[in-house]
Design a protein around this nucleic acid. Structure first.
Lengths: 211, 211
DNA sequence: CGTAAAGTTGCAACGAGTGTAAGATTGCTC
DNA sequence: GAGCAATCTTACACTCGTTGCAACTTTACG
């Protein structure tokens, strides 16, 4: 992409950011998200409170980093689908392989992490936000792929359907994790359920956005 | 349902609640949601700040009241569908008639109110929350209607599809309102688009949850 | 009436988030 | 390598939403 002029300043920034993030994650897991204060995180990382909020403007960002990757996921899969493959087929395949590799993007997480999220209204809200942004990004790619006009509602409706499937399965994985099943069990259950969810869309979307 | 022992206490409570809500709505519309402080609302309604937060534990509740009705909407429509009618058909019909009557539940609102929401991350998050709760309620009714087991993911997937359609159309109505179109124009545009959105689901869901 | 229950109020506190200005560090140039 | 400018970190102060608590007022009811 671009050359990386890794100056001292840049590398120190990365370190500081990582330092804060690590302490935050640890404290969140130990005590929960809401009970942990930003002041506490700052003290643990031995930086000023303001430094924490400089790097992470919102507290949620400390717990749910890498959101860009999550938001761009579905859109990227559709953009990179094979010739002759529909958006639905690409997303189905990507989800199933994400399950196989226990990908956090699909909803896999260690139990304490899942608990941290489930116990925090703030994080749940943020997650909903990310799901929505992901749908919007997907809608844009679909509009492009099908040559739909900027005012055509179809790509948005399809994105809602496809994003909805992923959302339901994401929640299902979280739910099973919270119920105490280990990752292998969760993967097995979801590997059986996911095809049913995608099959539901097959009659409607099999021919949509075929590359 | 139940008799109404309208004591003085009860009626004063209702008045106070309404008084606060009215001032809040007025101020939100005049100044926006975020810039308006609870202290300001309390002063306008001539009550203590604590009284405001007693009636409305969260600031969002002051702007988005009647959420119960919204959340229960889709589930209620499916529960009350005619014999021989599918969940999809019932929801399609209900949405179109909601558009005809410019129902706020479908997303219709005066421009200033729509602006208030669009300008506030807090309110947008709350709205996403309500949409989610609505999907969950719908899923429950669908599970009941189809006799699905408590662990069957199908009703949830279907609820996501149906709820997603309503969500997209809700956002579309907001978007058109924000663009300055009056309610009649918005209704005309959406009356044309909605059938396309529901038609998309027809191949998948025409036979699902037929009463 | 008088007492118990419920509602309102003022006060204090906590925590997230923001603005600002001072101090420290780094990058760059002469 | 000294100095200057840009950038990062810090301390401080402040706003606002939210909660807890105790005192006070009003209503309900025996």
């Amino acid at each position: 992409m671009s050359i990386e002029p890794v100056g001292l300043r840049e590398s120190k920034k990365r370190e500081t950011r990582q330092l804060i993030s690590d302490h935050a994650t640890r404290l969140f897991i130990e005590q929960g998200f809401e009970p942990t204060t930003i002041a506490e995180i700052a003290a643990a990382a031995r930086v000023a409170k303001k430094t924490v909020t400089n790097y992470f403007p919102r507290k949620e960002d400390l717990a749910l980093d890498h959101h860009e990757e999550f938001v761009a996921g579905l859109a990227g899969i559709v953009a990179g689908r094979a010739a002759g493959e529909s958006a639905l087929a690409a997303l189905r395949g990507a989800f199933l392989s994400a399950v196989e590799r226990r990908d956090p993007v699909a909803g896999f997480a260690p139990l304490p992490f899942a608990r941290m999220i489930a116990d925090s209204p703030t994080l749940l809200a943020r997650l909903r936000d990310l799901h929505d942004q992901r749908d919007a990004a997907l809608a844009e790619v679909l509009a492009e792929a099908t040559g739909a006009g900027p005012d055509d509602i179809t790509p948005r409706a399809v994105a809602a359907q496809l994003g909805g499937a992923h959302r339901v399965l994401f929640q299902r994985i979280q739910e099973l994790t919270l119920a105490g099943r280990d990752a292998a069990e969760v993967a097995a259950v979801v590997a059986e359920e996911a095809p049913r969810v995608f099959d539901l869309l097959e009659p409607s979307l099999a021919e949509y956005a075929v590359a």
